[in-house]
Design a protein around this nucleic acid. Sequence first.
DNA 1: TAGTTGATGTGGTTGGACCACATGGCTTAC
DNA 2: GTAAGCCATGTGGTCCAACCACATCAACTA
Lengths: 246, 246
Amino acid sequence: MWSNHINYDSDMRTHQLVLTWIEKQLSDGQLSVGGRLPAERTLAEQLAVSRTSVREAIRILEAMGVVRAGVGSGPEAGTVVISDPTAALGSALRLHVATQHLPVSDIVETRILLETWAAARAKPDAPELEQAATLLGEMDAVERVARTADDFLALDIRFHLALADAAGNAVVSAMMGSLRESIQGYTARFTANLPDWDATASRLQAEHRDILAAIRNDDGARAATLVAAHIEGYYREAGVGRQAED
Amino acid sequence: MWSNHINYDSDMRTHQLVLTWIEKQLSDGQLSVGGRLPAERTLAEQLAVSRTSVREAIRILEAMGVVRAGVGSGPEAGTVVISDPTAALGSALRLHVATQHLPVSDIVETRILLETWAAARAKPDAPELEQAATLLGEMDAVERVARTADDFLALDIRFHLALADAAGNAVVSAMMGSLRESIQGYTARFTANLPDWDATASRLQAEHRDILAAIRNDDGARAATLVAAHIEGYYREAGVGRQAED
DNA sequence: TAGTTGATGTGGTTGGACCACATGGCTTAC
DNA sequence: GTAAGCCATGTGGTCCAACCACATCAACTA
């Protein structure tokens, strides 16, 4: 009795039809985060398309961070709806950077814009700031003991993401994460070539503390200024602007 | 003699292997915008995977706006590399809005942030402003003759995109476009219910002119203020914030 | 009771077949 | 010789029928 009859535009590729159907289920709330899609074979039969087309649609949704597919039985199995916008934006941006149609400098500039806004907007009592403080301590530990730039950078990313989350805008958080992810390779490559990583790390940590302190003092303007200087300084060392010549 | 041997991580899904290979070709510059991928059957043989897996990878790249697949022969046929970041970000955001894990209010807020920045940064002599001016004229014509909100909105979108492009940051442009696309359905739905569309359209047009004038006067600060008010006012009418109850 | 084993259902992968389509060269008719 | 028509070729689009690896759970066995 339920109408599966969506827009049978004759010039629509089959997997698009499946995508449309699923998106409609999501919009109508008949499918929500945590829910499961029908099994691929079942869905194929319901929509009267091949399993291949169903799978192509699911592949796209997976790349978009909308579903997660798992084999076997149990809670981890089946195709379940999730919500990971960062994944989608991140890989998309990374791919377009690879095509060299998105300059790294534009990405850095956008990152500064978003992160500056987030710092200015974050509330001093945001719970995410606790996590940020913890991460600062872990970075100190890494710096003191192992002195590996990779570990430090991993924590650095999470610190900046925590600050962005503190602004309470999911879109900005997702975009921030994706921007950072898209140039992660770039960042790591140049960081490995720094002459004095210890000095750089110390400077970054000092700046991190200042930023966090400013936010906790409810001084959004100062926090924003510090963030801009922090990021700009870092990438200036990397020589963003002159296109990669290594 | 060429090594196709990428990371044969045993726990990598087959289509991911294909994706990795293609992304490497892009990064290495052996594949760039305008170039063509090998035919699906050829690529499958080269990578020693099934055509199905190749197709799943291509489907993802297509959804990401990285390639375009065309049947037949000739210039329009085959799988050719393009660069349309907006498509990827737009559909991803739209899907996540559908899952109701990205509040429309966050999208609007982010749009204001990006567009305000773009208005403040746009140079008075940017060529995109010419296009923006032309679009203003077309909107006048639409308003005078047909009075259909849909046509007006289509031009309105292009006007705002032109302004964003004038700032010269490809990432911001792409994100702007995707944000707008992701809530296009939402916007159109509420616009149709406005009591006096003509009055609204006139007001929007007046604001558009003021914004464009401010940019051309090199008064970025004023342009930013006007843009923020323009967008905020529009969505306030829509009642963004109270979650959709139509 | 404890351990084993097999049935079941999931996504993952493959090969092969056929289709619609667009081109381009060949054949044919004039 | 030229023009019209036609078919070989190669492309992506779709479908099908298998088989695999995996994880669970119920039935069976020691």
